[in-house]
Structures are given as C-alpha cells and as structure tokens.
Design a protein around this nucleic acid. Sequence first.
RNA 1: GGAGAGGUGGCAGAGCGGUCUAUUGCACUGGUCUUGAAAACCAGAGUCGGGGAAACCCGACCCAGGGUUCGAAUCCCUGCCUCUCCGCCA
Length: 431
Amino acid sequence: MLDRKFIVENAEAVKVNCRNRGVVADLDKLLEIESQRRAKLNQVQELNRKANEVAKSIGQTKDAGERESRKEQGRQLREEKDRCQADHDRLDQEAHVLQCAIPNMTHPDAPIGSGDHANVEVRRGRHPVRTFDFKPQDHVAIGERLDLFDLEGGSRTTGHGFYFLRNEAVLLELALQRYVLGILVGDGFTITTTPDLAQDRILHGIGFMPRGPETQVYSIENSDLSLVGTAEITLGGLYSGQTLEDSELPLKIAGVSHCFRTEAGAHGRATRGIYRVHQFTKVEMFAYTLPEQSDTMHQYLCELECRIFDGLEIPYRVIDTATGDLGGPAYRKFDLEAWMPGRGEAGEWGEVTSTSNCTDYQSRRLDTRFRTKGEKGTRFVHTLNGTAVAITRAIIAILENYQQADGSVIIPEALRPWVGKDRITPKLAGG
RNA sequence: GGAGAGGUGGCAGAGCGGUCUAUUGCACUGGUCUUGAAAACCAGAGUCGGGGAAACCCGACCCAGGGUUCGAAUCCCUGCCUCUCCGCCA
C-alpha cells in the first residue's frame, strides 16, 4: 500500500497512475475521510492529555472531596476520549480499505497501456528459436508418449488441474531445483525451504486476497491460514514487523515451495496439460534492499532468470509489462516468455518466469523497516521477487524444445548430472 | 499431549497501583582530559503517530488483545511465543 501522507500530498499523480493501470479507486472519498480522521486524532490526543493531567493531580491531592470531584472529571474525560477514539478508529478503518485498493506507483520507463500489444519486448535469449523438420508436438502428447504425466490420475484423486509427474518428469523436477539452487548459492543467495501455508495477514501484506469470491488461494477452514500461491508470500513475510540494519542489505533469499492457486475464472486452450495447474513446485528469489538499490536489483534478478534459461538452452524473450497488466504491488515487472513450439498453430511464447520490483508497497503493509546507522528513525525496505524456476512451465519448455523426430526428448546438458541420462525414450511395451 | 518457569529499551537485568519522566550495568553517540588512544569524568540517546520553519511540544508503546481503576509495566482474563522436564513421533 502507498503511504497515506504521500497519497494526500500527491493526489493528482496517484489518480493518473490509477487510470494508467486501469484501477478504479475512490481517491476523493479517501481524502475526505482522511482529513476527518486527522481532526478526530487531534481531539483524542487533546482529551488524553487532559485526562493524564487530572489523573496525575489526584495522587498529590490530600483533600477527600477534591479527590472525588477530580475522579469524576477524569471519568468524563476518558469517556469522551473513548467516544472520539471509536470515531477515529472507524474512519481509520474506512480509509485503510480505500487505501489498500490503490496500486503502487509505476516506474517511469514502464510502457503505458494494457493488453499484449502494449507490452514491450526488451530482449531475446541467447538461443534462437529452433526450426523443426517435423511437426512439433505439444507437451501433453510428448508426456503421454513418454509416460511422464498422469493427468487423469490427478483428476481422479484430487480434481481437474492436478497431476502426477511420473518417471523422468520426477527426475526433471528435482534436477531443475538442484540446477537453479546451485546457481543461486553461487550468487550469494541464502537458500531455504519454506512453509507451504501462511497467515492471512501475511497474504494480505504481499497483496493477495485470501478468502472471498475473488480469492486466488485456498484457505484452511477454522484457521487464519491459507496455502501459499508462491513462496514470495512466506519470504516476504519473513521479516514482518522487523527492523533490519542497513549494513545487512541487500538481503538475497531463495525459497523452494509448493504453490497452490485456485486459478478461478481461467479457462481455455492454455489450461491444457500442466501449463495452468492448481499445484506446482517453484524456486522463488526474494530480495530486501535499500530504496536506492531496488532498480539495480531488479535488473539483476531479470538477468539471473535469463542466465538460468540460457543455461538450459531454451529460447525466450523478455517483456517489460505495461501498466495495465501490472498487479497492485508491482512498480515494474519483467516476464520471461519461453518459446513453446507445441503451443498453438505454430508455437507461441509462454510465460515461464517473472520478476517484480514492489518498492515499499509490501514492506509498508508488512511493517518491514531498516535503520541507517547515525540516522534517526527508520524507513521501509524495498522488496523484489523473481522466479528462479517454476517446475511445470520449465518442463513444458524442455519437452517441447528438446523433442526429436524419433519421439525422444534430449535432456538439457545442464540437468544431466541429476537426471542421470541424456535422453528420454519411449518405454518398451509391457516393461 | 502433560507439568513447571518466563516474556521490560541493542543486550543483561530491577520495578509488583500514583515520586516511572522505567533504576542500574554493558554496549552506543557527543564532549572534557590526552601528542593520539585507553581509562576516568560529564552529557545524550528508542520506536510510531500528530503539531511546528526550527528549537521543541503533545499522544501512544514494558509480547498481543480484552478487563478493573480517576490512574496499570505493576491487578484480573484470553491468546501467542520462548525455555526446562516427561510422554509420543518421522
């Protein structure tokens, strides 16, 4: 969320930003409520001051009658204060709801607009799109032929959108994790495995909406817990309420977790196979930085994602996401879209990773601050997140790009140490 | 799961209804002294919010949330967390 004082002082810029992002927010109402709240706050503080004064004087008063009359005065002041406080709290709550609906400000270089045409391709991966001398198949057909997924089994036990990985696909999942973790450790990340559940207030802070008809996540009944849609939630919540030292920033953490998403309202061609599923494994990168470091860190995370896919020798392009497609917390977002030759009529780009700079939007709600030595007070850290690897999407990219005319799939060299073979071939019938 | 102990400033650790504006020590910052440093001495110092050009003033904060009271770090209730012991378990 944005700072309330900032909103009041920059109302016009905030309005323009909402318009660019296609967000409807009642800013005028917020400004009105906020000014009422300020007035109430002053009343509360004044009444408190008076009541404190009275309470203090009673201890020093010897005369019994005088004490009684002061007590009565104190009682009345506190009662009046409580009424004002209740008014204030109600206004504060109202303002908070409106405030939460306002998206982050936007990086000046982010393209303005919405839809695919507005997004800008900023670079391509090192490996060009491969040309096939046969009609490439999609991952569903490849997986079926090589016995790599059981979609029906997932559907039977759990429901549509769930799956079993089988055979080499399991090894691929583990190999991908091991491959990126090696890179991340080498780059100074602290690697972690995270809880797959988090408290609703943490989900809120990150920008998710647990519970309610619009929710993107699954919630646990009779608790304040939800399954995480990404480790961004737990990694971002990790220092909630904490004050870090400026000397320990930037902090680079990676987390391996399962991701659970309801994907409410997402249907169509792209739901085929394991492209859009309700559960998958992901290695997520997260960074806490000083405000002046976040732009550089964002570029770095994007380059790291590129390095990971270049290392897998998969063609991709990088997209600078336009304002209309940015989620609420993001100040700027880059997506990596891998070439998926089996998709659509003649192949399509499909999102495989994404990295966002959320500036202080999340840290303000989660109350994650930093202290600068020699400086008074604290400031909010900047938070950034990026996908190191989302297993299912990466598997799709591998299978479709590495498929061979004979029906086999070559294992990317970078993964062979952990898969233990260089090619997936059809299983022998009856084997 | 059972029993017990405890959560107070960066850390250690007092306070048990109004002299708390939270004692004290260590660490920290500035100053005096010194060629420099150490020691000693003096002073200062938290966070959030409100007001102010500023000096500064005001409110809130002793794990969290409720309650009692004119007044709560202190008393009562609930929750969370930590530690010790026992049981159980991968």
